[in-house]
Design a protein around this nucleic acid. Sequence first.
DNA 1: TAAATCATCGGGAACGTTCCCGATGATTTA
DNA 2: TAAATCATCGGGAACGTTCCCGATGATTTA
Lengths: 340, 340
Amino acid sequence: MSKKEVIRIKDIAQALNLSTSTVSRALQDAYDVSPDTRRRVLEVASSLGYKPNIHASALASGSTRNIVVAIPFITNYYFSSVISGIQEMAYKNRYNIVLLLTNDDTEREKYLIENLAVSNFDGLLVSIASDTSDTAHFQAIIDRGVPIVFFDRVPQNPESSKVIQNDYEGAFKATEYLIDKGYRRIAHLSGNTHLLITQNRLKGYLDALNKHRIPVRQEWIIHSGFSQQHGEEDMLRIFESEEMPNGIFAINDRKAVGAIMAIKGKGKIVGKDIGVIGFTNDPISLIVEPSLTTVEEPAFEIGQKSCELLIKHIANKNFLPKQIILSGNLIERNSTRRIR
Amino acid sequence: MSKKEVIRIKDIAQALNLSTSTVSRALQDAYDVSPDTRRRVLEVASSLGYKPNIHASALASGSTRNIVVAIPFITNYYFSSVISGIQEMAYKNRYNIVLLLTNDDTEREKYLIENLAVSNFDGLLVSIASDTSDTAHFQAIIDRGVPIVFFDRVPQNPESSKVIQNDYEGAFKATEYLIDKGYRRIAHLSGNTHLLITQNRLKGYLDALNKHRIPVRQEWIIHSGFSQQHGEEDMLRIFESEEMPNGIFAINDRKAVGAIMAIKGKGKIVGKDIGVIGFTNDPISLIVEPSLTTVEEPAFEIGQKSCELLIKHIANKNFLPKQIILSGNLIERNSTRRIR
DNA sequence: TAAATCATCGGGAACGTTCCCGATGATTTA
DNA sequence: TAAATCATCGGGAACGTTCCCGATGATTTA
């Protein structure tokens, strides 16, 4: 057997004495084909094992059925879960995913996006790199008529659809939870300042402090990257401050785990001496000792919703940009327990 | 601006008073175009911002520049690292990745593979589901002239290229390391029996025992799945055996972490009472308490090599199937330390 | 000097599908 | 009963690229 004997619409047409246009219309459920011929076409198509050639279809119709997904990494739980959600929704709607990894590097992100040919995909799903503040390369895509949906790490500028977790509410809940548990001197291990996710979580933290009339201490708010390494470094910096906090709210679980490592390294006891809470509900939060209290992020669902939204934009050019905000529960574990 | 003003080869041709065929050949570095015209074509192409239409190219040339990647999950460190490696190599060679997730379910795997149209991709990269023993659906693809490269979880049957870590050697090293450290009663938390990876790691374990004249105890060899959950259950079963081992070699880090959880749950001390060693070097091995001794798997490299091999198969139909076996180092941590 | 080779280019069919437009016979409407 | 509408289908151009084949003038060979 060889590739040559792939069967085409023409083969179905010949088998049924129909024209290729009629077969094509039958396969796409067009209105102007009789129920009987449609049935016969579908029968022959499946018996011959017909599978459409997506390239020919893309060329003729202008719809490529490709969705480009650009994310910083794939090797962490959050992003790989998002991809799973995207993949599910895309496959269901017969879209393929083209994966781009930016390595969280703005230059690489720009390079990848700028080298994209708009004739090769129908839409773009993006979580931007930590340091990306100029979003002109995305605007250029939008200007050429191709929709973008941002998720998780979304920029402020381009007014397009966005899917995020309820960062403000989650951060507020996390901070208030620490306060309720009696940890009132709370530091915040934050992220890169220009990201919305950073700003919203910071705001939730600040508002929770305000609500409980706890003064804000700038030296306890530390901005850096999103890795475990960053969390560890941030925590070590906090150990150098004059007065020590007794609670840590980290912008994500990986930074929280880094903080726990640093705290243990200093001989302090997590929970008893310093309470720690994270954000994500990464599986590592169950593995770290003590287990990490956290606010869950609906990563898979974010992937699904983003993809669903993008598909709507693709199907309808006039679909208005929309924001979807998903909430997650706070999950109590041992890192915020005084006695165990 | 709209999609319509995408520029094509014809536009370059008109700008230079050349034919489309000459421009096409110039862009592909064909031999029969003068250095001067090639230079002019490239200049105009880049100044106009020409990007080739992959669908038209695929249709005309028969080469789709799509690679399908089918894996059980993406939400674990190993597979997401492999994907990163694949992605890098694919992007370098101007291939796109089409991602399929089987959820480690054989039925779903079959369904996805059988619904693939061979005219839509050039090659397939696969790590099979745990329970897959019948590989006819892969054979069907190969029979239609499309190359497959298997990696990590590879089947026995189809004689195609395979990329794996040196499972035998790694398992042997791991087991012998436990023996050298004085843990001589060693159990093995193994995987699904029909997978090569399971068989090779089991063999390495057995041979290391034999070399040191340690009798094999069948009740200490437990076959199940690959998750942390499975590791925990396996370990609990071992706790029910008459005599307890004092060393655990788990087929991967997630199962090892599960075992550690179970051991701690029973009030035993990992390292002092029972030494544990894993396989992968998943980041969780640094987070679990105590940190996990393990044999590293070169996941990123496996992705790269698999993709590289597949591209060679695509470029040359007569390229003979090849096995690549990569080694990883043993990394000592605290789960195999008697005193800390 | 005639024939063969070489370097360089263009014409145009082909890939498999979609979609516009028109055709035809049957049915409904005025 | 004539005109309008409807249901159903086919012809054929078009999408943007590749690639086969042939053409042409220049250079090399015999």
